[in-house]
């Protein structure tokens, strides 16, 4: 019970509720269901990328190329739609996911086969992917009037009152949660990040596991690429510039240990929601965007401090009463 109360997820939920309550006290309309749906929808791209990033961070890596991947996938979708409006949106969507997965797989292969540190690999591919957007688009924008109605309409279409964009966020979260908690690959992510040496001795191929993590992260970035471009009805070189850092921030706030091997999907969801709510709530209560950045930054530092504190060794259990207390505290 104590463990449940002091868990990262509970504390973060509390912080989110507090944030909502404070905002509501100044502007009650913020917590109207329709507005909450809008906030969640607005946060969905961040959530989708953060889910992919979580998987990568769990394996003790980092993917800085997600925003560039998103932008390139989005640009390819937009240009394809502009050139051939007849192609069904479902096909474009599948292409976006595939293209993103290929870009993620390139990151993964470089980390796996050449053993280059992930931060260096993705810093490089981040620049390359942005460069490719410029090459294929000549730096030109693809604007709303060049896109088909079906293309831009999908993220906004409503199913059961929720926009499709939000549904994609929910579906991705469910899928990644299922994979992480219920498949051998998901278990391997934790093992590889938690103790790479032990993973090797267990017969887990560390490089291959990291490769799959990057591929999944890339696929989600590709999906987010189409959704982003269709939602805002515009594609250009610099969309989602610097967004990768917000994605990493969501993971860190959600309690995903940057050292790998620790964290939950629920944490990531809450971390993304926390940032999304701050972004949407502060303008409503008339706080300047610069405060927004400061508050997000403070949240990151607080989250990391809490992580380090909980990770710090509590000392060995030598006292009998400490042993007894622990046994009582543990769930049966």
């Amino acid at each position: 019970m104590k463990r449940l109360l002091t868990s990262r997820e509970t504390m973060l939920s509390g912080a989110i509720l507090l944030l909502l309550a404070l905002t509501a006290s100044r502007f009650p309309g913020f917590i109207a269901p329709a507005n909450l749906v809008a906030v969640f929808t607005d946060t969905s791209p961040l959530l989708i990328l953060a889910l992919g990033q979580t998987v990568v961070i769990l394996t003790r890596c980092i993917d800085l190329s997600v925003a560039a991947n998103l932008a390139l996938s989005g640009m390819v979708c937009a240009m394809l739609n502009a050139a051939m409006p007849g192609i069904p949106v479902a096909l474009i969507l599948a292409l976006a996911v595939l293209l993103g997965a290929v870009m993620g797989a390139i990151n993964g292969a470089l980390v796996w086969k050449l053993a280059i540190p992930p931060i260096v690999v993705t810093l490089g591919t981040m620049t390359i992917y942005r460069g490719i957007i410029f090459l294929i688009s000549d730096g030109a924008w693809v604007n709303a009037h060049e896109m088909s109605a079906a293309f831009t309409g999908l993220p906004r279409a409503r199913i059961l009152g929720l926009p499709v964009l939000a549904w994609f966020g929910i579906a991705s979260a469910l899928l990644i949660w299922l994979m992480v908690t219920r498949t051998p690959l998901g278990r391997a992510f934790y093992a590889v990040g938690g103790n790479p040496h032990a993973a090797v001795y267990t017969g887990i191929d560390v490089g291959r596991t990291q490769f799959w993590a990057f591929t999944i992260s890339g696929a989600l970035a590709g999906l987010a690429g189409y959704l982003w471009v269709a939602r805002y009805s515009v594609a250009y070189v610099d969309i989602a510039g610097g967004f990768e850092l917000e994605v990493v921030a969501a993971c860190v706030i959600g309690g995903i240990s940057i050292a790998g091997g620790a964290g939950t999907i629920l944490g990531t969801i809450l971390g993304a929601l926390f940032l999304g709510i701050i972004k949407n709530a502060l303008p409503v209560v008339d706080v300047s965007p610069f405060w927004q950045m400061a508050i997000s930054g403070a949240a990151i530092i607080i989250a990391v401090t809490l992580n380090t504190r909980s990770a710090r060794a509590k000392g060995r259990i030598i006292l009998r009463r400490a042993q007894a207390a622990q046994t009582e505290g543990a769930p049966a």
Binding site: T183, P184, R187, Y190, A191, N195, A198, A199, G203, G261
Partner: peptide
């Protein structure tokens, strides 16, 4: 360094190389 995955529960450490059996 090479044995247990600290931070993982006991049961997951035990089943790590046997996941094909339990899945």
């Amino acid at each position: 360094k090479q044995g247990a995955v600290i931070g993982m529960p006991i049961f997951q450490n035990v089943t790590l190389p046997s996941l094909s059996q339990t899945s």
